[in-house]
């Protein structure tokens, strides 16, 4: 089962590299924000899988929860900032 988790984690890392194309070359700010939010959700799963591979899930699950939380607040704050930028 550990090999299966490693394979899943490796596949997610490759997907993160594909999404990174949108972050680097994506036209405009909004494409970049959407791609960064997608990378954040993938990272959450990668963190949990790292916990299972190392055998210390009870530690990594807290880190993953905080990551999900800060990802959400960050996306909300950036979208609010861009809206505000237009009004000025």
């Amino acid at each position: 089962m550990s090999t299966f988790f490693l394979a899943i984690g490796l596949g997610l890392c490759i997907l993160v590299f594909f999404v990174l194309y949108r972050v680097v070359f994506g036209p405009g700010v909004f494409n970049r924000i959407a791609a960064i939010s997608a990378i954040g959700t993938k990272t959450l799963i990668i963190l949990l899988i790292m916990g299972f591979v190392y055998g210390r899930v009870e530690m990594f699950v807290d880190i993953s929860l905080v990551y999900a939380l800060l990802n959400f607040i960050g996306v909300l704050a950036v979208s609010k900032f861009l809206e505000m930028e237009k009004e000025l």
Binding site: L44, V61, F72, L76, K80, K86
Partner: peptide, 28 residues
Amino acid sequence: KIVFIAVFMALAQPTATHAISKAALRVG
């Protein structure tokens, strides 16, 4: 805790998507 993360993501992810798309519509 993992189930709690799942509930949180089910609430938060659509809200974040909604916020980005609404900001993009407002900006034009």
